[in-house]
């Protein structure tokens, strides 16, 4: 257990009387994709925010590669966020700078970690546009001229450009239509395999979880009710809530 990339123990966070996190334990190993599923309000997004240091839990610990994330100063945490971690927001508007060109958006993280050669930054940004299947001619276009799916792919390029080890994704396919979702999931799966990323993905889409994740964590009322390998959890759900969740997926 000691070589987990990120591990959380006993996370507790309450919003008034509602327990958003009620004693959550979680481990992520390098190169592993873990999906957190559950209904709205089950604490999925709060868990993601607590693990990535965006909110501070009332109790519990989060350890990343041997460092105590909650005890870390803000400077160290931001540095971690720039170099080792990435965060893909549900709404690309939260993760992109809408007034800055696609190239500038991708280059921001490179420049934040010290890249100071315009030509190299631009070449890297072009390469990443190609990787996320956006026409490199759009390098100097503003993200607001992009479609929703392109914006989300641009956000992924911007996050992965510094080759993080761990990426948090908060419903990356939410708000996109089905065919665009499928293409995006395909892309994420390819990039994750290629770069050997560890990914913690929050989703309420069971199909997306089955496609991407190695492991599934089912949350309800701020607790982890079931956890296991994706196929095991989805094909042989043990907890009544998981059974309900799996049974409610619409078959096409």
């Amino acid at each position: 257990m000691s070589n987990a990339l990120l591990s959380a123990r006993g996370l507790v966070l309450r919003f008034g009387r509602i327990a958003a996190l009620d004693g959550v334990d979680l481990d992520i190993w390098p190169g592993e994709v873990v999906a957190i599923v559950g209904e709205s309000g089950s604490g999925k997004t709060t868990l993601l925010r607590a693990l990535s240091g965006l909110v501070r839990p009332e109790a519990g610990s989060v350890t990343y590669a041997g460092q105590d994330v909650l005890a870390m100063g803000e400077a160290a945490r931001r540095d971690l966020m720039r170099r080792e971690w990435g965060f893909v927001h549900q709404n690309p508007r939260d993760g992109l700078r809408m007034g800055v060109s696609a190239g500038g958006n991708i280059g921001e993280r490179l420049m934040a970690v010290g890249a100071r050669h315009y030509g190299n930054i631009r070449a890297e940004a072009t390469a990443w546009l190609q990787r996320v299947e956006i026409d490199p001619d759009r390098l100097d276009a503003l993200p607001r001229t992009f479609s929703g799916g392109m914006q989300q792919r641009l956000q992924i390029a911007r996050t992965l450009v510094t080759r993080p080890r761990l990426v948090f994704m908060d419903e990356p396919t939410g708000g996109l239509d089905v065919s665009v979702q499928a293409r995006l999931l395909d892309l994420i799966r390819a990039l994750v395999a290629e770069l050997g990323l560890a990914v913690l993905i929050v989703t309420h889409d069971i199909a997306a979880a089955r496609l991407l994740a190695h492991r599934i964590v089912v949350m309800r009322h701020g607790r982890v009710v079931e956890e296991g390998l994706t196929d095991r959890v989805l094909d042989d759900p043990q907890h009544p809530y998981t059974q309900l969740l799996v049974a409610s997926v619409l078959a096409a």
Binding site: G104, A112, V113, I121
Partner: peptide, 22 residues
């Protein structure tokens, strides 16, 4: 203020990048 405190100045270079790109 937080950016100054943490010397987090990547954003300023984004502005210069945009200048050159445009």
């Amino acid at each position: 203020k937080r950016m100054h405190a943490l010397a987090d100045y990547g954003l300023m270079h984004v502005k210069l990048y945009e200048d050159i790109a445009r």
